[in-house]
C-alpha cells in the first residue's frame, strides 16, 4: 500500500462573524494515499472550499491537525508555511487566478522564482511542462489574450511546476464549457496516471467527480459518505455518485 500523501485528523474550523460563530467544518478525518485522485462533493456551504483552503495552508484549522507527507502543518510558522505552500502544494482555482499583468510564462515560473530556482532549471521544467500541457505556443501571451481552457492549463502548469506532493483543485471546471471541462479532467487523469501526482479536487459536478477513483461527500461540515470507484466503469461510478448525492440532498 502506498504511504499517505495527506492526512486530516479531527479538523474543525470556526469562523467568528458578526452574527456569532459559524462552524464550517466539524471533526473532518480522512487520508489520501500517494498518487490517489480523489474528489470532494457537497452542496454550497457544506465546507468544500474551507476544506481546500485549510489543506492549501491559506487558512489554519481551529482544532485538529493536517499532515502533508511527513509534515504537520500546525508546526510551521508563517514564513515556513509560505515556503511549504510554494514547494509542496499546487493549487488550481475555478477562476484560474492568473496574475493579469504577467505573461503566461511569467505566471508559470513565479513559484520557482520565489524559491530562487536557477534559471537553467526553470527553463528546463517550463519546456517540458508546456509541451505536455500543449501551451508552448501561448507562453508569451497575457491571460487576457488566452481562452478559458488555455488559462486553466496555464494555471495547472503553474501549480505543477514545483513538482508538488499534492495538487489541489477548487472547482477547476467551473468556468469552462463541457468540452473544455472534459479535456481538463482527462488531463488530470493522465497526470495522475503518468506522474503519480496526488490530486484532490472539490466539485459539485457529478460527471467531473466520476473521473476520480474516490469521492468524499461533505454535508454541514462533516464527512457524510465516501465511495470508491474500484474497477467499475466511469458511467457506473457516475450513477452511484448521483444516487449518493440524491440521498445527501434529500436528507436535508
Amino acid at each position: 500500500m502506498e504511504p499517505a500523501a495527506l492526512r486530516l485528523l479531527g479538523v474543525t474550523k470556526y469562523f467568528a462573524g458578526p452574527g456569532g460563530v459559524t462552524r464550517a467544518l466539524k471533526g473532518v478525518e480522512f487520508e489520501l494515499r500517494l498518487g490517489e485522485f480523489a474528489a470532494v462533493m457537497g452542496p454550497s456551504g457544506s465546507g468544500k472550499s474551507t476544506l481546500l483552503k485549510l489543506i492549501a495552508t491559506l487558512e489554519t484549522p481551529t482544532a485538529g491537525s493536517i499532515e502533508i507527507g511527513e509534515t504537520n502543518l500546525a508546526a510551521l510558522r508563517e514564513e515556513r508555511l509560505a515556503a511549504f505552500r510554494r514547494d509542496r502544494l499546487g493549487v488550481v482555482f475555478q477562476n484560474y487566478n492568473l496574475i493579469e499583468v504577467l505573461t503566461a510564462e511569467e505566471n508559470i515560473l513565479l513559484p520557482l522564482d520565489l524559491a530562487h530556482v536557477p534559471w537553467q532549471e526553470e527553463e528546463k521544467r517550463l519546456r517540458a511542462l508546456s509541451e505536455e500541457l500543449g501551451i508552448a505556443k501561448v507562453l508569451k501571451k497575457f491571460p487576457r489574450d488566452l481562452s478559458g481552457g488555455e488559462q486553466q492549463r496555464v494555471a495547472i502548469a503553474r501549480a505543477l511546476i514545483t513538482r508538488p506532493a499534492v495538487l489541489l483543485a477548487d472547482e477547476p471546471t467551473g468556468a469552462l464549457d463541457s468540452a473544455g471541462a472534459r479535456a481538463l479532467m482527462e488531463l488530470f487523469c493522465s497526470l495522475n496516471a503518468k506522474n503519480k501526482t496526488t490530486v484532490f479536487m472539490a466539485t459539485h459536478d457529478a460527471w467531473m467527480a466520476s473521473y476520480t477513483s474516490r469521492v468524499l461527500f461533505l454535508r454541514d461540515g462533516r464527512i457524510f459518505n465516501e465511495i470508491y470507484r474500484g474497477q467499475r466503469a466511469q458511467k457506473e461510478f457516475y450513477e452511484e455518485i448521483l444516487a449518493v448525492r440524491a440521498a445527501l440532498e434529500g436528507g436535508r
Binding site: 492549501a56 491559506l58 509560505a82 487566478n97 496574475i99 513565479l110 520565489l114
Partner: peptide, 15 residues
Amino acid sequence: KSFEILQSLGGDGRT
C-alpha cells in the same frame, strides 16, 4: 487580487 494570488503561490508576508 494580484497580491492574494502571490500569497497563495507561496509568497510569504515579507516578500
